[in-house]
Design a protein around this nucleic acid. Structure first.
Lengths: 343, 343
DNA sequence: TAGCCCCTGGACAACGTTGTCAACTGCGGG
DNA sequence: CCCGCAGTTGACAACGTTGTCCAGGGGCTA
């Protein structure tokens, strides 16, 4: 009755299977399966015996086998740039939360903004047969995904559109947000405004630049090309760019920072300057209101991006078949002071 | 020659298997397996034929089946409190990076500081047969993991120790860090110092409180119990606690904040006060140096915690068998100004 | 009491892959 | 000319689970 360790040689690292449980409970294999899955058709007494055997042996269903048999993995993959970036943490969490509501686990990976690594990760996830993918693309050619999508792996892109394939995508309104930011600076009297953005191959960087140019043009302001820098967002690079704009022959009186990493470095640079320079940053961040001057930003709702994307994904997984959608999430200008400095 | 779509009825959502590839290439199943896995013993000509079939059919190996057969999943699980918390993002990223170096994928889940949810997640990961687990525990009883560990799932705890089982653990030196923080405030002339920490069931909260009390006692200072609050770190709660300490009968002249969320709210509260109040926070955060006064903190190295834990995990997975270890990562006091305000 | 149905339980195949082992080829040496 | 050998290749079982289908037994009705 209490013979927990009995004849069945349980080597370390070897798990009991349903067969073992069945043998111990003196029932058939399928009966154990029924109990484990809560299927009907088992008498209370049999069920109890099976439960006892499960507990005694420490049995846990092997989901790998289950997945193989059923064809669905109840897991989705998320590929983003860097989990350590404060913009992606909330996004990832939101995706996870939606996945959880649908009983799915989340496997995620960071591409480090490297297209090859993105592809490697995505294909590894496909080999695992995740049910769906949420991808923040690093590359700009996703034709490699075509066979996977055709084979039924639902895919939603977030933050940036897919390259060369037609797929669902959820974006922030980078263009509109940038336009609004720059218009805000113009409204406060600025005429020479600098823009420091991410690498030009990144969609959001291009869109924000376009917003900047459109706003400038709409106000009839010329743009000196020394006021625009796209490239690495590494601190030293941003620092050099900002310094050049501020000390150039046509010094800017305001800066528009293309993302949160740029903004942070810009704040540091401006802090060292004798005269105040106006600044608006794309992306909100914690404590933006506590820095002096408080930082005016164009806020994107990362969690909402993630929720929306995951929602779209599970719609697909639930079998809703419709042409690829493009959802745009509005941004919001939060005026806090740094953008209201007059030239 | 170009008959991509031929007799084999490929329904949407059905993937080709090695059998299909074998049939198309006119070879045996095992030969396909050999090619896919780069095993030797296949003539270049045969290999080419198989490769062509693979490309034509869009075949991708089903890792679920592979996992079932091989027993190893090449994936590890990470259970933490909240991926959106800026402390855990870098930790998660560090674990991911180590996993990647070992060819493993990372599945992660947020427990939301709920013990039941932690257990649910952990067991789901075990059912997936992850090779190992990195857990930031929310609960304080992990005996439920015993059968899993006995069955060979390596487990490492981070940030907080496991409850009621003996397992590897990687911790920050919360006690020492807190002691140092409070001593720092005392050295700057403070006698009445408040402490606002996380819920008392959380190990780090207890340790930091212990450090606080030890430092006070070492300086021969009494602690009025109205100066100590442990509990939710929700902003309104922290705000109320701080206000009470600052306006009480024995008003504190300095605050020690038990984690990053508390610190942020404390900064906001102190900002509204007419007289400066000293503040030291546990956990560093971006922009801590840009707020005025810049925030003095006890910095923990989240990435190093993650790297160390993952390193330990893979040592276990590589078969190194030794008694459970307890690794403590030192903290570092970064004086920036807010802790140097005199009473 | 025969006949029938329902309820429970089990035998068996299948999911897609990999490990084992044997068969086949062509070649060189005795 | 035959034997053995090395190098390829494929047939088959197994991994642990679930779906299908059938068998046995008990209770009910005619």
């Amino acid at each position: 009755m209490t013979d927990t360790a009995q004849g069945t040689s349980r080597r370390y690292g070897t798990r009991p299977t349903m067969k073992d449980v069945a043998a111990r409970a003196g029932v058939g294999l399928k009966t154990v399966s029924r109990v484990v899955n809560g299927e009907p058709g088992v008498t209370p007494d049999t069920e109890r015996r099976v439960q006892e055997a499960i507990t005694a042996l420490g049995f846990r269903r092997n989901d790998s086998a289950r997945i193989l048999r059923k064809g669905r993995t109840a897991s989705i993959g998320l590929v983003l740039e860097d989990l350590a970036d404060p913009f992606y943490g909330p996004l990832s969490r939101a995706v996870e939360e939606v996945a959880r509501d649908h009983g799915a686990l989340l496997i995620n990976g960071s591409s480090a903004e490297d297209p090859d690594r993105e592809q490697e990760l995505v294909l590894a996830l496909c080999a695992r047969r995740v049910d769906g993918l949420v991808v923040i693309p690093a590359g700009d050619d996703h034709r490699y995904l075509e066979p996977e999508i055709a084979a039924g792996i639902a895919t939603v892109f977030v933050d940036r559109p897919a390259g060369r394939i037609d797929a669902d995508v959820v974006l922030s309104d980078s263009f509109g947000g940038a336009q609004e930011a720059v218009a805000h600076l113009i409204a406060h009297g600025h005429r020479r405004i600098g823009f420091i953005g991410d690498q030009p191959r990144i969609h959001t960087a291009k869109e924000r630049l376009r917003g900047y140019r459109t706003a400038m043009a709409a106000a009839g302001l010329p743009v000196d090309e020394s006021w625009v820098t796209l490239g690495s967002t590494a601190p030293e690079h941003v620092r050099a760019a900002a310094t050049a704009m501020l000390d150039g022959p046509e010094p800017v009186t305001a800066l528009f920072a293309g993302n949160n990493r740029v903004t942070v470095t810009a704040v540091r640079v401006l802090r060292e300057r004798p005269r105040p320079v106006a600044l608006v940053g794309f992306d909100d961040f914690e404590l933006a209101d506590l820095v002096r001057p408080a930082i005016t930003v164009v806020a994107q709702d990362a969690a909402r991006l993630g929720r929306t994307a995951a929602g779209l994904l599970f719609r697909r997984l639930d079998g809703i078949d419709e042409p690829p959608r493009r959802v745009e999430i509005p941004t919001r200008l939060i005026a806090r002071g740094s953008g209201e400095i007059r030239p």
